[in-house]
Amino acid sequence: MDNEKLIHAIEQYERSWLLFALVMIVVFLIFIGYTLTGFAFYVPSAAERVDPTTVRSEGGLFANPRVEQTGDNVYTAYVLAQAFSFLPGEIRVPKGARVIFYVTSPDVQHGFYIRGTNVNVQVIPGEVGKVEHTFDEAGEYLVICNEYCGLGHQDMIGKIIVEDK
């Protein structure tokens, strides 16, 4: 095969491959857009910005980390992620509960990752992260810190217990 023909043949393959690549990327983007609209999925958003040095002291938003019922099967949890534990360390909600989490840190960065769900928040001092999740299955969920926060990082683990009622 002479050079001209060879180049021509390659260019044709090349065009097909590029078309395939572009179509693939577009399809992926469509899937991403589609999953953004549902799928038990919630983009962590910023509820507000707070001073991390005072957030847990008296009068602060997270002075009393807790979970409380705020509606018909709706619960709101104020969670403090701190070195090296979550407060409250154990959250109990009934099956089917929709839980809105507000999470922040008084010290360094942490992770707020509920294993087996799509809840995965970077906990950043100064930011109150907000996510929500509906627990349709009963059982014990682990809350795992997945950002390095110091020597005790690997043991920074909390629990959410979803009770069958």
């Binding site: 393959y13 090349e14 491959w17 590029l18 690549a21 572009l22 990327i25 992926f28 983007l29 991403i32 953004l36 983009v43 962590p44 958003s45 910023a46 509820a47 910005r49 992770g111 995965n120 928040v121 970077q122 950043i124 930011e127 109150v128 992260g129 907000k130």
Partner: peptide, 30 residues
């Protein structure tokens, strides 16, 4: 993506641009 404090809109824009940067790598593979 997991950071509160950055809007979902700009996260989306960066997603699209990240996908764009896959194209030159796919060209390279060929």
């Amino acid at each position: 993506f997991a950071d509160p404090g950055i809007s979902a809109f700009w996260k989306g824009v960066h997603t699209v641009l990240t996908m764009m940067v896959a194209v030159p790598s796919l060209m390279t593979a060929f």
